[in-house]
Write a protein that binds this DNA or RNA. Structure first.
Ligand SMILES: [Mn+2]
Ligand SMILES: [Mn+2]
Ligand SMILES: [Mn+2]
Ligand SMILES: [Mn+2]
Lengths: 226, 226
DNA sequence: TTAATTTTTTAGATTTGTCTAAAATTTAAT
DNA sequence: ATTAAATTTTAGACAAATCTAAAAAATTAA
């Protein structure tokens, strides 16, 4: 696989996330996400098209080619492996890993990443519960539902947190919810769609805890395995 | 400490290595080492001078300021810590670590490096035996031997002069021996333990010079890097 | 179905880092 | 002390990535 600039990699990765399967991505959308200007996006789209990473006709939006998706998965693999390393080995907090991984992901030695993967024991998920692509670009996609859709009293395990902002993670830490936390939904309130949940006992919470409630906004961002 | 570009960091680091204490570094020397052109070096020297990292007057060569040295030591710290990590944890071979560390060294999160250092157990030397600066820039002195112990015909570079009296310096100047002078020992005389040495050609002594001898007393005070 | 609005692209500039070729300066040789 | 040679700097150009302002195209509204 060819080598791409940091800037190209950031565009490719972001398009992959925005298109999320088959969506067509628009210029403004991408510009906003990358905190750049539409004119800059257009320039880069021409370049990526020339490199055959992108399907693009002027004014028609764009989608990654299969080759483009492969490149994107490789960058995502690097990003998530570093996040895992930072959290697991260097004891970074949940909300600190992302910014550092944004830099580390652009160090593109194939051997480095494969050896890192091996050293970490081939982890399947990053600290936010997002799946880590293997060296061939394959990753787990388990059945996941948000807390909003989880039936009452059905035990489940938190596997993924979609919004990874510092504020979100601060809130989760305060509520003692982590990836791997087991819980069940006890009630749903129609008025504001808030949800009452109860954590199951664990290493961290050895004594029985009372149920507490979380907002709909938070619940929508927390995903569990059934 | 401010943030510098990858290119600026590579220049700073290379100047640090070339000046090795107090040598003045020349444009051609630096261009060759960085595999770039003298004109590019001059451009960058202006920029680094403007940032107060460099002492530089046109045509007079350059040396890092104290601030510049601090920056250099920080880059070297990053480089060597990553080399240690790659060799020790990821089981890279001795000769593979350098190129990868050349990229990793430019990821400049302070917290990342300090946590990495802690995780690695505060190693003192990288896999090549070069000392790793601590978070304050301090490092262990490298392997040094006095001229008395230096094997015959082994090229070495003067790195330290222990006795700094006026008489000592007068003698050294007369013999054209400075920090950074490269030389080798040609003979050792048993009678008075005097030593015959030969200076290697340099900017200051571009033509081949005949060997000359120095006393044991003097030789004991001159240290070289192997 | 025109007109207004939004989106996207182009044109032209800017910054960083690089280059070649020519001029300026320093150093070495005659 | 001149002259010759080497070193260093300047001048001008270029590629990558970005920006602003203006033009073009697509979308939405009247
Ligand atoms: Mn992330
Ligand atoms: Mn990135
Ligand atoms: Mn190295
Ligand atoms: Mn480097």
């Amino acid at each position: 696989m060819l080598n791409f600039s940091t800037s190209e990699e950031n565009y490719i990765k972001t398009i992959f996330h925005l298109q999320n399967g088959q969506n067509t991505v628009t210029t403004n959308e991408l510009a906003e996400r990358l905190r750049t200007k539409p004119a800059s996006v257009t320039d880069m789209m021409k370049k990526l098209k020339a490199k055959k990473l992108l399907h693009y006709q002027p004014y028609q939006g764009f989608r990654l080619t299969n080759e483009g998706k492969k490149v994107a998965l490789d960058i995502i693999r690097r990003h998530r492996l570093w996040e895992f390393f930072l959290a697991e080995k260097l004891k970074f907090k949940w909300d600190e890993v992302h910014v550092v991984a944004e830099d580390l992901e652009h160090v593109s030695s194939r051997k480095l990443i494969d050896k890192l993967d091996e050293y970490l024991g081939y982890p399947k998920f990053d600290p936010h519960g997002d799946p880590i692509p293997d060296s061939l670009g394959k990753m787990e996609n388990s059945e996941q539902v948000s807390l909003v859709e989880l039936p009452l009293n059905k035990p489940a395990e938190v596997c993924r947190v979609v919004n990874q902002s510092e504020e979100m993670l601060e809130l989760l830490q305060h509520k003692k919810i982590n990836i791997g936390t087991r819980l069940e939904v006890k009630r749903k309130f129609g008025f504001d769609h808030s949800i009452e949940i109860k954590l199951r006992q664990s290493k961290r919470t050895p004594s029985e805890q009372p149920p507490f409630s979380i907002s709909e906004q938070l619940a929508k961002n927390i995903f569990v395995n059934l």
